[in-house]
Design a protein around this nucleic acid. Structure first.
Length: 619
DNA sequence: GCGGATCAC
DNA sequence: TATGGTGATCCGC
């Protein structure tokens, strides 16, 4: 077969090609949904994309990632040299035991997830589409279309190539939002305190409901799904588990129109996690998947196998996060996002590439105007303005300015944005946007007058004038109305109350070493290249001295830094394996525990919504 | 404080 | 010909 001969030749091609092809398949591939033969689909996507600016950008990023991986592998090779692995493992195992002791199996958490939500709503309103592959660019694809590899976010012409019969329809955003509200209100009957996480999913804690109605979790969810279907004709999938991370993974298990329960039993959970691909875990995307893969971690079970490596490279991998993932432990706190948790508000627009400064300024002015409206409607002002732009090459840059006063008017937003923009010189852009951070809540009660607060809330926030349809539309669109938040918030899977300063795995560094590192980092040039042209990189590499090993190196700053990383790891490891009883005598372990807790270098920790320890076992 | 990167939806 | 918008977080300066 021809396919075979092609496959035989494949390994000759660089890994780069393989990973690039995967990258092009899009961010969602592998996360959820079909597990069918992706390779042919990926091949088509790569072929059709080839040569475009988008493709070139993906290629560049893929190359950078490959370099990053090589660097990590080098560090790992150095770091494991001559260390007592079993000793490190023993320390990790103590950490695991500590986490284990905090496991909470008492809550019944449900993750509900509408099946192909937008597409399903379209089907209701246009039954003609039934059984046909259709999609709306950038927002949805029916299950039939997904079979062909069509994904949301995909360029129309690529989608058409995958599925020539694809029907493209306009999207009806307001309808989706109204339907979403309808569905959410049903969920709220089971948990009025639920967390809405986007327009088609949410988390519920049904512990109380099940107790009060003497009903099992499975029956409760079954009923909830039935009622949603009866009232809206939409199907929903659900996962039942003792925490948010597990519930979310479970809701994907029997999709579409199914539910899956992970019984709250330690052994069951461990067995479940052992086989689970790390890619399914919230917070692990395409990049982290590849980084983990590079050190042999594909499933959550592999985390345990490689726990020593991870511990030695906590900075790169985030030991605590991965250990909790391996154990299937995460936050089980369910509550709506609070207004004061809001960190930024922004607006941005993509257009066909443009290099006329005047026209770009007009775009910027329009953005400023939209942002003003948005901020006014929701009662925000802010101190820092960030300009964002994307070149026609798809490279993204941001430029920020902090002020000594709060702003919210279009005039302020535009004039600051314009300054930032003009400082960049001549650019060819495909996107421009503004974001405001350091927010002040204009609706927050003033510290001075409680009375004022009371009047304000009763008149404007709670019993405001009747909503007209326009208002509903807008409120849905911009997520943060007082009561009914539709914020795409981080569910906050992991609480890392770091109560374990007494446990150390690889005591990374003493203060001297930290100091040395910082000293060097100060000298390192900031790497972002100037956006337009300007060849980056200094050409020659002056000789430099490593502050740790005193070796003289003829390398540039970046490589020097890599070298120092190695040196630091090495000495840290020596120390860790030389120190007998590493954990015992460290009552005051500020430096190491700081480093430990800070080690989230690339595995983003979903936000820890502090607060309300449900049943903290220890203080 | 700033800028780049990653991630979720 | 052609690949989104909003918000969050973390790291390394």
């Amino acid at each position: 077969m021809q396919a075979d001969s092609i496959r035989l030749q494949e390994p000759v091609q660089s890994q780069e090609t393989e990973s690039l092809v995967r990258r092009l398949a899009g961010p969602s591939s592998g996360k959820a949904g079909l597990a069918n033969d992706q390779s042919e689909i990926n091949r088509i996507i790569a072929e059709v994309s080839k040569g475009s600016k988008f493709y070139e950008n993906e290629k560049r990023r893929d190359k950078e990632l490959t370099e990053r991986i090589n660097k990590i592998l080098n560090i790992r090779d150095e770091v494991v040299k001559g260390v007592d692995i079993s000793k490190i493992e023993a320390n990790v195992d103590r950490l695991l035991a500590e986490f284990e002791s905090q496991r909470d199996l008492t809550q019944i958490i449900v993750h509900v997830d509408m099946d192909a939500f937008y597409a399903s709503v379209e089907l209701l309103n246009n039954p003609e589409l039934k059984g046909k592959p259709f999609g709306a660019i950038l927002s949805t694809a029916s299950y039939e279309a997904r079979k062909y590899g069509v994904r949301s976010g995909m360029a129309g012409f690529v989608a058409k190539k995958l599925c020539p019969d694809l029907i493209l329809i306009p999207e009806h955003f307001t309808t989706y939002m109204e339907t979403s509200d309808q569905v959410m209100s049903i969920f709220k009957r089971y948990d009025p305190n639920m967390l809405i996480a986007g327009c088609d999913e949410g988390y519920l804690n049904i512990t109380l409901h099940c107790e009060e109605h003497s009903v099992s979790a499975a029956d409760c969810v079954q009923e909830m799904r039935r009622i949603v279907f009866e009232e809206t004709k939409l199907t929903v999938s659900a996962g039942i588990a003792p925490n948010k991370m597990l519930a979310k993974i479970c809701s994907d298990r029997n999709k579409p129109n199914g539910q899956f329960q992970l019984i709250p039993d330690r052994k069951t959970i461990l067995a479940f996690m052992r086989e689970l691909s790390v890619r399914k875990v919230f917070g692990i995307g395409r990049v982290n998947e590849r980084l983990l893969e590079s050190i042999g971690i594909k499933t959550c079970g592999d985390i345990f196998t490689h726990r020593a490596t991870i511990a030695l490279m906590d900075k790169q991998f985030g030991l605590h996060y991965l250990l909790k993932t391996y154990l299937g432990i995460s936050s089980n706190e369910v509550r709506p996002p609070q207004r004061e948790e809001r960190k930024s508000i922004g607006s941005e627009r993509t257009f066909s590439p443009l290099d006329d400064g005047e026209v770009l300024l007009q775009k910027l002015e329009h953005i400023a105007s939209e942002l003003e409206t948005d901020m006014a409607r929701n009662g925000w002002a802010g101190k820092t303005i960030t300009l964002k732009y994307k070149l026609d090459t798809y490279q993204v840059f941001t430029r920020a300015k902090s002020l000594d006063r709060y702003v919210s008017s279009k005039e302020d937003l535009f004039s600051i944005g314009r300054k930032l923009f003009l400082a960049e010189g001549h650019l060819k852009l495909r996107l421009i946007g503004l974001r405001v951070t350091k927010l002040k809540d204009l609706r927050a009660p003033s510290p001075a007058g409680i009375k004022k607060f009371f009047e304000a809330t009763t008149s404007s926030a709670h019993t405001r004038r009747k909503l007209d349809p326009e208002d509903i539309h807008k409120a849905r669109h911009d997520y943060d109305n007082a009561e009914d938040l539709h914020i795409d918030a981080m569910p906050g899977f992991y609480e890392h109350e770091e109560t374990m300063h007494d446990i150390e795995v690889g005591d990374i560094g003493n203060d001297d070493e930290v100091g040395a590192l910082e000293l060097v980092q100060d000298k390192v040039k900031s790497k972002p290249r100037p956006p337009v042209s300007a060849p980056s990189r200094s050409l020659s590499s002056p000789a430099q001295v490593c502050p740790i090993c005193r070796q003289i190196l003829k390398v540039d700053n970046r490589d020097l830094n890599t070298h120092i990383d190695l040196c630091l790891s090495r000495s840290a490891v020596r120390e860790a394996s030389n120190t007998s009883g590493g954990a015992g005598a460290t009552e005051n372990s500020t430096s190491s525990s700081t480093l430990m807790t800070r080690g989230w270098s690339f595995l983003m920790t979903p936000k820890d919504t502090s607060s309300r320890p449900k049943k903290r076992k220890r203080k």
